[in-house]
């Protein structure tokens, strides 16, 4: 049950490059990453692709398959027809190192800019008491495998490179929401979410949610609730008036 599949793969270093055509064996039950590996082993030994667990748990093999951000290991060949040409390109939002491998350091920089979990000083390890219902919201966001496809697909930076300096991307805005909803976090994150990390750039068009391989409801459960929390702080005239009068 194997056939010759038509692949068109981006080859090149540092952004310069072209789409190269390959005809390669495809067997029943395979995923796109398997075929890329077959290309490596048979036709293009130096074809660069990043991968790890091959089970959709590590988020390494993010790429764009027929223009859509996907994990190579979770895209079954059976979702395509046999005569279809499958185009595989690197994530568009990040600079290319080589072939399908991109430089995702933007994401690690942004991770660093977000103040870490800040528990109260007087709680010692082992003394934490939290109810399941209080941790569930943040637990959903912690399912994130950091494939960075949400940041890749987000048009705020995908189409506007200049926004990278002041926009943390859905992944890290969600991280802010995760911490802000943590029952023991005492840091104030609302102002900085808007001012420093660019929550206002999000126009909730939900592409992050659409591409999330973990099916996290990024927009509905993290970004919008965080926007509402910012409204509490910054755009609620009653709160604003109260602050003016009582000076906090």
């Amino acid at each position: 049950m194997s056939y010759k599949g038509k692949f068109r793969v981006w080859r090149g270093e540092g952004g310069e490059g072209r789409l190269e055509d390959f005809t390669v064996e495809v067997n029943e039950g395979e995923v796109v990453l398997d075929v890329i590996h077959r290309l490596q082993a048979t036709q293009a030994p130096d074809l660069a692709v990043r991968w790890n667990c091959k089970a959709g748990k590590c988020g390494s093999c993010s790429m764009e398959i027929n223009g859509k951000p996907r994990l190579g290991c979770m895209t079954r060949m059976s979702t395509f027809t046999e005569d279809e040409t499958i185009t595989v390109t690197p994530m568009r939002t990040f600079p290319v190192i080589k072939d399908l491998v991109t430089d995702v350091s933007y994401n690690y920089q942004k991770a660093r800019e977000i103040p870490s979990f800040t528990p109260p000083k007087d709680v010692k390890p082992g003394e934490y008491r939290m109810q399941q219902i209080d941790v569930e919201r943040s637990q959903e966001f912690r399912k994130c495998i950091e494939c960075f496809m949400c940041n890749n697909v987000c048009h705020v930076i995908r189409d506007h490179e200049e926004n990278k300096t002041h926009f943390a991307g859905p992944r890290f805005l969600m991280r802010i929401a995760e911490l802000d909803m943590h029952p023991y976090d005492v840091a104030d994150r609302k102002d900085s979410a808007q001012e420093d990390h660019g929550l206002g750039y999000c126009n909730i068009t939900k592409c992050c949610t659409e591409v999330c391989p973990e099916h996290i409801k990024i927009t509905d459960n993290a970004l919008i609730p965080m926007k509402e929390r910012v409204v509490d702080r910054k755009y609620d005239p009653l709160v604003w008036l109260g602050n003016k009068i009582f000076r906090r």
Partner: peptide, 24 residues
């Protein structure tokens, strides 16, 4: 092992909970 797990919690880990709020 218990101290190491509790330490993780103080660094932000969110384990599943028991009814009385401890780590399940």
């Amino acid at each position: 092992a218990p101290d190491r797990v509790w330490e993780l919690e103080a660094w932000g880990a969110l384990f599943d909970r028991t009814k009385d709020g401890k780590i399940s």
